[in-house]
């Protein structure tokens, strides 16, 4: 059975997720010992100090900086970033893991910041849309978004940019189908999707020409 690696006296290092994961491991270890294992795990978790409901000090690593914050354990990572850390690039649209506007990278993987608690993100490297451009220089993807006009109102844009940043890092030459898959969890209401695909392709080195034409009325028969 996997043992908790948390040092004694550090109550924050057992997240709900790892607790549940450990429970799962325990249960899979064998039907006979499962109940006993769960009981042991529960007892250990119960022995940890209960977090909250009042605000607790936490530390997040965001865009390479250490951010000490004080917030209630029930605060989501999204609210922590937006309301407590002043990083408003990630947006709240659905607040329930549907639209992707709150997408940030957690150790390089795109996640919905509205779907996890800030305390769970401790010890992880968080990247938000504000952390992509270096010294005012946009990334190739961001440049392509501007070139191809892949944003309209712009509210979904940070989420798409983060999903595609993660895609391009693991797959520098995606197909349109790869791009669709990477953005399957992002919604746009203005209708920028065709140009988001074009921007992602351009950022991967594929030049995409717009087929839109302007034809003079006089030339229409």
């Amino acid at each position: 059975m996997k043992q908790s690696t948390s040092p004694p006296g550090d109550p924050l290092s057992v997240s709900r997720r790892s607790f549940l994961k450990n429970l799962g491991t325990t249960a899979a270890a064998g039907a006979v010992s499962a109940a006993e294992g769960i009981a042991q795990e529960s007892a250990r978790a119960g022995a940890e100090a209960v977090q909250g409901p009042d605000a607790v000090p936490i530390t997040l690593r965001v865009n390479g900086e250490t951010r000490p914050l004080t917030l209630e354990p029930r605060v989501t990572l999204l609210d922590a970033l937006r309301d407590h850390a002043g990083l408003t690039g990630a947006k709240e649209v659905c607040d329930r893991g549907t639209c992707g506007a709150c997408t940030v990278l957690l150790d390089g993987e795109p996640v919905y910041a509205c779907m996890m608690l800030a305390i769970q993100a401790q010890g992880r490297e968080i990247t938000t849309v504000e952390g992509l451009a270096r010294n005012g220089n946009l990334t190739a993807l961001q440049e392509a978004f501007v070139d191809k006009d892949a944003s309209m109102c712009g509210y979904c844009t940070p989420g798409f940019v983060m999903s595609l940043t993660a895609l391009l890092r693991r797959n520098p030459h995606p197909t349109p189908a790869d791009i669709h898959h990477a953005c399957a969890g992002n919604l746009c209401r203005c209708g920028t999707q065709p140009r988001i695909v074009q921007a992602a392709l351009q950022a991967s080195g594929v030049e995409v020409l717009s087929r839109t034409e302007v034809i003079s009325y006089a030339h229409l028969a």
């Binding site: 990083l87 408003t88 690039g89 501007v146």
Partner: peptide, 21 residues
């Protein structure tokens, strides 16, 4: 012509009402 506020929108620098604090 590139959208005037495109760079602000792709970097998260554009401040919407929901971002005002």
């Amino acid at each position: 012509v590139r959208r005037a506020d495109g760079p602000l929108k792709v970097t998260g620098a554009a401040k919407y009402t929901s971002d005002v604090q």
